[in-house]
Design a protein around this nucleic acid. Sequence first.
DNA 1: TATTGTTATACTCTATAACTATA
DNA 2: TATAGTTATAGAGTATAACAATA
Lengths: 128, 128
Amino acid sequence: MATFRLSRRLRSQRALDTMSDAQFAVLATLKGHGPHTLGELAERERVTAPSMNRTVNCLEEAGWITRTPDETDRRKVNIEITTQGRELVAETVRRRDMWLAQVVADLTPSQRRTLARAAAIMSEVAAR
Amino acid sequence: MATFRLSRRLRSQRALDTMSDAQFAVLATLKGHGPHTLGELAERERVTAPSMNRTVNCLEEAGWITRTPDETDRRKVNIEITTQGRELVAETVRRRDMWLAQVVADLTPSQRRTLARAAAIMSEVAAR
DNA sequence: TATTGTTATACTCTATAACTATA
DNA sequence: TATAGTTATAGAGTATAACAATA
């Protein structure tokens, strides 16, 4: 329950209210891990290809990403984040960091250490 | 990021694949905190009344909840979880607990203490 | 023939605006 | 007149099935 609550609270801190979680997740992946094909994005987000295609369409229309046909395998399409897309992700991260910084400032050093250790364990657990 | 990852992983453990998160959240609220009016549910889930109305419609058609006009204020509708609804929530909680139990079994006692402490801090933080 | 991306279709969640019934 | 719930309508995410282009 604590995980669900905190997740929801963090998610509410974003740069653009109009952008959905699904869209932002794709944008964050592209910014953090470079260009991906549609299939790679779909697999990474555990979503079907048509679903990811729709999300990517929205991002493309808004100018946050670009589609480029792959040179070597013409079936593939390389999806890349634009400069504006990068800035949007950065701004959202800044907001979340600001919110977290305020919250963490009120915690004791011991509580901070606990959260840091827990984060590592939680990531490990979620990967199973 | 750890919070988002774990949240997603936990959410994937449910009794009915066909039930959405929004529907399950309402059901869990009704089971844990008793009957609510439509407006109360909407406010609690931070969603508009029409949106909640639609979710409640689906739950009612499926037999997980019942609608009953309020006796004292006829504008209001009391929404209550059914016996089957209770069982569905219980089953989902069982599944999540089973998954968590398996995961936690592989952790050290120190790691478990860290997660327990972190959960309390995270809940507190999310409430701000 | 298999793979990659796309389109067609359908259902749920979300919202705002407008409407009904009740207070 | 204000409030609680509902319906109308529209946009986005999700899915499966079917299709086009390419390997």
